[in-house]
Design a protein around this nucleic acid. Structure first.
Lengths: 94, 94, 94, 94
DNA sequence: CACTGGAAAATGCCGC
DNA sequence: GCGGCATTTTCCAGTG
């Protein structure tokens, strides 16, 4: 069986620890989210409806991103480097 | 249909925005985790094994927590307020 | 719209019925589990603790399986077909 | 701390083992269900649609049961012991 | 590159 | 009626 040198072991340990720290941060945020929902509920809001609202807003955001992606494709096809170039043009025009 | 006054609407908006910010933070961390795995993989580590290692370490932690939960339940059943009370008793005894 | 021939429809019906029977069996077992908990509770046991005990026992089993999975992965990486091959080698050596 | 006599310990062990056996049976059925879905998929059916079909049929069944519950309530209110009494009457009539 | 298996997230349910 | 938990659904990396 292959031996693992100390350096490699330390690298691995480092990766594992970084991951565990990130997972922990993520867990904390998940907890924060739950607390915000709890607070909203205590204030009298219906969390189920709130979740639906969030979902719809996310879908809208997604739609916007997809629209931008299409725009980006068109820009590329038309030889315009990026959307920001259009912004600049528009600002100049204004 | 009931009308919603401006104040309530603002409260709701505030909750929604806080939640969206938290969701975004969480998404960033998820992305970070993926990148660490990618880096580890590029360094030559087997991510599958790494995930299993993380899982086992998490299970150890989880098991410890479950055991503590049982202890807590017993303490409650026996009229001892908390585990720390036991610690105190033991310290006195020592 | 595509038409569905009778044979296909019967096949589908057969699958659906098999699934519904299995779901029903599963529901019966879930009910049995509830009843055992109820009986234990009536006998004076704390179901919460029982659930925790079951969880820990399950985790032990799971941990064992995870560890075996890692071993299996190493074996594979080292060109050893299976754990039983190791057993054989060890038996010869003994 | 209270001591637990052997008899109680055996009772507990018995409950735990019964539960573990039931959990195992349940897991087997869950596995069977997955296999039926896999088979249906291999036959060319869309499992997602099948799941929707099952859900709708379940809702229908639920509706039927609720209707029966209402009927049962009426029967009770009218001094008829059970639905089966109605069945008998109908069978006689036929 | 479609598929499968497993992890993460969302939903629904049950007990308190 | 609520929190907590189990189940379900969804997503994604890995694989043939």
């Amino acid at each position: 069986m292959e031996t693992i040198d100390a350096s490699t072991a330390n690298q691995l340990r480092s990766f594992i620890e970084r991951l565990e720290r990130l997972e922990e941060d993520k867990a904390i945020i998940s907890q924060d989210i739950k607390e915000v929902f709890a607070e909203a509920k205590a204030t009298g809001f219906d969390t189920k409806i709130m979740k639906t609202v969030l979902k719809i807003r996310k879908m809208d955001e997604q739609k916007r991103l997809e629209a931008e992606a299409i725009l980006e494709t068109y820009c590329h096809a038309l030889g315009i480097d990026s959307v920001s170039d259009i912004s600049k043009s528009l600002q100049k025009a204004a």
